[in-house]
Amino acid sequence: MTAPVRTAPTPLLRVSGLTKRFGPVTACRSISFDLHPGEVIGIVGESGSGKSTLLSCLSARQRPDAGTVEYATRSRGLVDVYALSEPERRLLARTEWGIVHQNPRDGLRMDVSAGGNVGERLMAVGDRHYGHIRAKAEDWLRKVELDLGRIDDLPRTFSGGMQQRLQIARNLVTGPRLVFMDEPTGGLDVSVQARLLDLLRGLVRELGVAAVVVTHDLAVVRLLADRLMVMWRGEVVESGLTDQVLDDPHHPYTQLLVSSVLQV
Protein backbone atom coordinates (compact mmCIF):
# COMPACT_ATOMS: atom_id res chain seq x y z
CA MET A 1 0.00 0.00 0.00
CA THR A 2 1.21 3.47 -0.79
CA ALA A 3 1.26 5.95 2.01
CA PRO A 4 -1.22 8.83 1.77
CA VAL A 5 0.02 11.70 -0.30
CA ARG A 6 0.95 14.55 1.99
CA THR A 7 2.82 16.70 -0.47
CA ALA A 8 -0.17 18.54 -1.91
CA PRO A 9 -0.41 22.04 -0.48
CA THR A 10 -4.17 21.91 -0.01
CA PRO A 11 -6.41 18.92 0.38
CA LEU A 12 -8.94 18.04 -2.30
CA LEU A 13 -11.68 17.68 0.27
CA ARG A 14 -11.69 19.16 3.76
CA VAL A 15 -14.39 18.14 6.18
CA SER A 16 -14.70 20.03 9.46
CA GLY A 17 -17.04 19.32 12.36
CA LEU A 18 -19.71 17.75 10.19
CA THR A 19 -22.85 16.86 12.16
CA LYS A 20 -26.17 15.55 10.89
CA ARG A 21 -29.19 14.74 13.06
CA PHE A 22 -32.46 13.00 12.36
CA GLY A 23 -34.79 13.92 15.17
CA PRO A 24 -33.36 12.62 18.41
CA VAL A 25 -30.79 10.53 16.54
CA THR A 26 -27.41 12.00 15.63
CA ALA A 27 -26.37 10.19 12.47
CA CYS A 28 -22.95 11.86 12.23
CA ARG A 29 -21.28 13.67 15.06
CA SER A 30 -18.56 16.25 14.53
CA ILE A 31 -16.60 14.49 11.80
CA SER A 32 -13.43 16.05 10.41
CA PHE A 33 -10.86 14.80 7.92
CA ASP A 34 -8.84 15.81 4.87
CA LEU A 35 -8.66 13.92 1.60
CA HIS A 36 -5.79 14.61 -0.75
CA PRO A 37 -5.71 14.35 -4.54
CA GLY A 38 -5.38 10.73 -5.63
CA GLU A 39 -6.03 9.39 -2.15
CA VAL A 40 -8.62 6.74 -1.37
CA ILE A 41 -10.27 6.81 2.00
CA GLY A 42 -12.47 4.01 3.27
CA ILE A 43 -15.31 4.51 5.74
CA VAL A 44 -16.37 1.31 7.45
CA GLY A 45 -19.03 0.52 9.98
CA GLU A 46 -22.12 -1.57 10.38
CA SER A 47 -25.46 -0.44 8.96
CA GLY A 48 -26.86 2.40 11.04
CA SER A 49 -23.39 3.64 11.94
CA GLY A 50 -23.98 6.83 9.93
CA LYS A 51 -21.57 6.10 7.10
CA SER A 52 -24.11 6.42 4.31
CA THR A 53 -25.45 9.66 5.77
CA LEU A 54 -21.89 10.94 5.91
CA LEU A 55 -21.39 10.05 2.25
CA SER A 56 -24.50 11.92 1.15
CA CYS A 57 -23.43 14.95 3.20
CA LEU A 58 -19.98 14.83 1.60
CA SER A 59 -21.35 14.52 -1.92
CA ALA A 60 -23.61 17.57 -1.53
CA ARG A 61 -26.79 15.56 -1.50
CA GLN A 62 -27.78 16.24 2.11
CA ARG A 63 -27.04 19.45 3.92
CA PRO A 64 -25.39 18.83 7.31
CA ASP A 65 -26.77 20.53 10.42
CA ALA A 66 -23.35 21.79 11.39
CA GLY A 67 -19.82 21.82 10.02
CA THR A 68 -18.47 22.38 6.53
CA VAL A 69 -17.49 20.37 3.48
CA GLU A 70 -14.92 22.16 1.36
CA TYR A 71 -13.76 21.02 -2.03
CA ALA A 72 -10.81 22.29 -4.05
CA THR A 73 -12.31 23.12 -7.45
CA ARG A 74 -10.07 23.31 -10.50
CA SER A 75 -10.81 26.97 -11.00
CA ARG A 76 -11.46 28.47 -7.58
CA GLY A 77 -9.57 26.44 -4.99
CA LEU A 78 -11.24 25.39 -1.74
CA VAL A 79 -14.95 26.26 -1.66
CA ASP A 80 -17.66 25.33 0.80
CA VAL A 81 -19.87 23.08 -1.31
CA TYR A 82 -22.99 24.08 0.59
CA ALA A 83 -22.22 27.75 -0.02
CA LEU A 84 -22.29 27.11 -3.78
CA SER A 85 -25.46 27.83 -5.67
CA GLU A 86 -27.48 24.83 -6.72
CA PRO A 87 -26.45 25.02 -10.41
CA GLU A 88 -22.80 25.23 -9.37
CA ARG A 89 -23.22 22.18 -7.15
CA ARG A 90 -24.94 20.27 -9.91
CA LEU A 91 -22.20 21.23 -12.35
CA LEU A 92 -19.58 20.06 -9.89
CA ALA A 93 -21.42 16.77 -9.44
CA ARG A 94 -21.37 16.04 -13.15
CA THR A 95 -17.90 17.27 -14.00
CA GLU A 96 -15.38 16.97 -11.18
CA TRP A 97 -17.20 14.34 -9.16
CA GLY A 98 -18.60 10.90 -9.68
CA ILE A 99 -21.05 8.96 -7.55
CA VAL A 100 -21.22 5.19 -7.69
CA HIS A 101 -24.40 4.01 -6.02
CA GLN A 102 -24.82 0.72 -4.25
CA ASN A 103 -27.82 -0.06 -6.42
CA PRO A 104 -26.95 0.51 -10.08
CA ARG A 105 -30.59 1.42 -10.66
CA ASP A 106 -29.97 4.63 -8.75
CA GLY A 107 -26.97 5.53 -10.83
CA LEU A 108 -27.93 4.38 -14.31
CA ARG A 109 -30.69 5.31 -16.70
CA MET A 110 -32.24 1.91 -17.12
CA ASP A 111 -34.12 2.84 -20.30
CA VAL A 112 -31.07 4.29 -22.05
CA SER A 113 -28.52 2.06 -23.80
CA ALA A 114 -25.15 1.32 -22.23
CA GLY A 115 -23.46 3.65 -24.72
CA GLY A 116 -25.95 6.40 -23.97
CA ASN A 117 -25.38 5.98 -20.27
CA VAL A 118 -21.65 6.45 -20.69
CA GLY A 119 -22.10 9.26 -23.22
CA GLU A 120 -24.55 11.28 -21.12
CA ARG A 121 -21.91 13.09 -19.10
CA LEU A 122 -20.00 13.95 -22.25
CA MET A 123 -23.11 15.43 -23.78
CA ALA A 124 -23.89 17.20 -20.52
CA VAL A 125 -20.61 19.07 -20.77
CA GLY A 126 -21.21 20.00 -24.38
CA ASP A 127 -19.86 17.25 -26.64
CA ARG A 128 -21.96 17.37 -29.81
CA HIS A 129 -20.11 14.91 -32.04
CA TYR A 130 -21.81 11.54 -32.21
CA GLY A 131 -18.74 9.72 -33.54
CA HIS A 132 -16.58 11.09 -30.79
CA ILE A 133 -19.07 10.29 -28.04
CA ARG A 134 -19.50 6.81 -29.43
CA ALA A 135 -15.72 6.20 -29.57
CA LYS A 136 -15.30 7.38 -25.99
CA ALA A 137 -18.13 5.15 -24.83
CA GLU A 138 -16.55 2.16 -26.55
CA ASP A 139 -13.21 2.99 -25.01
CA TRP A 140 -14.74 3.04 -21.56
CA LEU A 141 -16.74 -0.12 -22.01
CA ARG A 142 -13.45 -1.78 -22.92
CA LYS A 143 -11.77 -0.34 -19.85
CA VAL A 144 -14.42 -1.78 -17.54
CA GLU A 145 -14.26 -5.06 -19.46
CA LEU A 146 -17.74 -4.98 -20.93
CA ASP A 147 -18.44 -6.67 -24.26
CA LEU A 148 -18.55 -3.99 -26.99
CA GLY A 149 -21.34 -5.93 -28.65
CA ARG A 150 -23.59 -4.90 -25.78
CA ILE A 151 -23.09 -1.15 -26.32
CA ASP A 152 -26.62 -0.62 -27.63
CA ASP A 153 -28.31 -2.88 -25.09
CA LEU A 154 -30.29 -1.57 -22.17
CA PRO A 155 -28.70 -1.94 -18.71
CA ARG A 156 -31.67 -3.92 -17.49
CA THR A 157 -30.51 -6.80 -19.65
CA PHE A 158 -27.14 -6.75 -17.82
CA SER A 159 -26.12 -8.78 -14.78
CA GLY A 160 -25.57 -6.98 -11.47
CA GLY A 161 -21.79 -6.98 -11.89
CA MET A 162 -22.04 -5.64 -15.44
CA GLN A 163 -24.41 -2.90 -14.32
CA GLN A 164 -21.97 -1.89 -11.62
CA ARG A 165 -19.10 -1.75 -14.11
CA LEU A 166 -21.24 0.32 -16.44
CA GLN A 167 -21.99 2.70 -13.61
CA ILE A 168 -18.27 3.09 -12.98
CA ALA A 169 -17.59 3.80 -16.65
CA ARG A 170 -20.40 6.36 -16.73
CA ASN A 171 -18.84 8.17 -13.80
CA LEU A 172 -15.24 8.09 -14.92
CA VAL A 173 -15.72 9.07 -18.57
CA THR A 174 -15.36 12.80 -17.91
CA GLY A 175 -12.23 12.31 -15.80
CA PRO A 176 -13.55 13.31 -12.37
CA ARG A 177 -11.09 14.10 -9.59
CA LEU A 178 -13.18 12.66 -6.81
CA VAL A 179 -15.49 9.66 -6.76
CA PHE A 180 -17.91 8.75 -4.00
CA MET A 181 -18.72 5.07 -3.78
CA ASP A 182 -21.44 3.57 -1.64
CA GLU A 183 -20.94 -0.17 -1.10
CA PRO A 184 -19.66 -0.59 -4.66
CA THR A 185 -19.58 -4.36 -4.35
CA GLY A 186 -22.75 -4.76 -2.29
CA GLY A 187 -25.22 -7.29 -3.59
CA LEU A 188 -22.71 -9.03 -5.87
CA ASP A 189 -21.54 -12.58 -5.40
CA VAL A 190 -18.02 -13.17 -4.19
CA SER A 191 -16.23 -13.99 -7.44
CA VAL A 192 -17.83 -11.00 -9.18
CA GLN A 193 -16.85 -8.82 -6.22
CA ALA A 194 -13.22 -9.80 -6.49
CA ARG A 195 -13.07 -9.01 -10.19
CA LEU A 196 -14.78 -5.67 -9.70
CA LEU A 197 -12.44 -4.72 -6.88
CA ASP A 198 -9.47 -5.58 -9.00
CA LEU A 199 -10.82 -3.43 -11.80
CA LEU A 200 -11.57 -0.54 -9.47
CA ARG A 201 -8.14 -0.64 -7.93
CA GLY A 202 -6.53 -0.57 -11.35
CA LEU A 203 -8.63 2.34 -12.55
CA VAL A 204 -8.19 4.40 -9.41
CA ARG A 205 -4.45 4.00 -9.56
CA GLU A 206 -4.23 4.56 -13.30
CA LEU A 207 -6.34 7.72 -13.26
CA GLY A 208 -5.07 9.06 -9.98
CA VAL A 209 -8.60 9.81 -8.92
CA ALA A 210 -9.38 10.37 -5.25
CA ALA A 211 -12.20 8.38 -3.73
CA VAL A 212 -14.35 8.05 -0.64
CA VAL A 213 -15.53 4.45 -0.33
CA VAL A 214 -18.25 3.54 2.13
CA THR A 215 -18.58 -0.14 2.93
CA HIS A 216 -19.23 -2.64 5.66
CA ASP A 217 -16.81 -5.04 3.94
CA LEU A 218 -13.26 -4.90 5.29
CA ALA A 219 -11.95 -6.76 2.24
CA VAL A 220 -13.01 -3.82 0.08
CA VAL A 221 -11.10 -1.25 2.10
CA ARG A 222 -8.07 -3.44 2.51
CA LEU A 223 -7.81 -3.65 -1.24
CA LEU A 224 -8.79 -0.11 -2.20
CA ALA A 225 -8.21 2.35 0.61
CA ASP A 226 -5.04 4.12 1.65
CA ARG A 227 -6.63 5.32 4.83
CA LEU A 228 -9.50 4.15 6.91
CA MET A 229 -12.10 5.66 9.22
CA VAL A 230 -14.16 3.40 11.45
CA MET A 231 -17.63 4.70 12.30
CA TRP A 232 -19.70 3.58 15.22
CA ARG A 233 -22.93 5.18 16.36
CA GLY A 234 -22.37 8.31 14.33
CA GLU A 235 -18.81 8.90 15.41
CA VAL A 236 -15.41 8.17 13.98
CA VAL A 237 -13.91 5.95 16.66
CA GLU A 238 -10.65 5.17 14.92
CA SER A 239 -8.75 6.27 11.85
CA GLY A 240 -5.36 5.80 10.27
CA LEU A 241 -3.55 3.96 7.54
CA THR A 242 -5.62 1.01 6.41
CA ASP A 243 -3.11 -1.71 7.22
CA GLN A 244 -2.29 -0.15 10.55
CA VAL A 245 -5.92 0.03 11.66
CA LEU A 246 -6.78 -3.44 10.46
CA ASP A 247 -3.66 -5.12 11.84
CA ASP A 248 -3.55 -3.28 15.14
CA PRO A 249 -7.05 -2.08 16.03
CA HIS A 250 -7.26 -0.02 19.20
CA HIS A 251 -10.93 0.77 19.70
CA PRO A 252 -13.00 -2.15 21.04
CA TYR A 253 -15.51 -1.79 18.21
CA THR A 254 -12.78 -1.98 15.59
CA GLN A 255 -11.34 -4.99 17.33
CA LEU A 256 -14.74 -6.62 17.22
CA LEU A 257 -15.15 -5.73 13.56
CA VAL A 258 -11.77 -7.13 12.61
CA SER A 259 -12.09 -10.27 14.67
CA SER A 260 -15.58 -11.00 13.42
CA VAL A 261 -14.33 -10.87 9.85
CA LEU A 262 -11.36 -13.06 10.64
CA GLN A 263 -13.59 -15.65 12.23
CA VAL A 264 -15.70 -16.04 9.12
Binding site: E86, V112, G115, G116, E120, A124, I133
Partner: peptide, 22 residues
Protein backbone atom coordinates in the same frame (compact mmCIF):
# COMPACT_ATOMS: atom_id res chain seq x y z
CA UNK B 1 -37.71 23.47 -14.36
CA UNK B 2 -34.28 23.20 -12.80
CA UNK B 3 -32.86 21.73 -15.97
CA UNK B 4 -34.13 24.74 -17.91
CA UNK B 5 -33.00 27.19 -15.27
CA UNK B 6 -29.48 25.77 -15.26
CA UNK B 7 -29.46 25.03 -19.00
CA UNK B 8 -28.74 21.36 -18.30
CA UNK B 9 -29.70 19.96 -21.64
CA UNK B 10 -27.36 16.99 -21.98
CA UNK B 11 -30.25 14.61 -21.55
CA UNK B 12 -31.94 15.93 -24.67
CA UNK B 13 -28.95 14.85 -26.70
CA UNK B 14 -29.00 11.45 -25.03
CA UNK B 15 -32.37 10.95 -26.69
CA UNK B 16 -30.92 11.83 -30.10
CA UNK B 17 -27.87 9.65 -29.41
CA UNK B 18 -30.18 6.72 -28.69
CA UNK B 19 -31.92 7.23 -32.02
CA UNK B 20 -28.70 7.15 -33.98
CA UNK B 21 -27.37 4.17 -32.02
CA UNK B 22 -30.52 2.22 -32.69
Amino acid sequence: RKMHAYAEYGLMHVRLYEDIAR
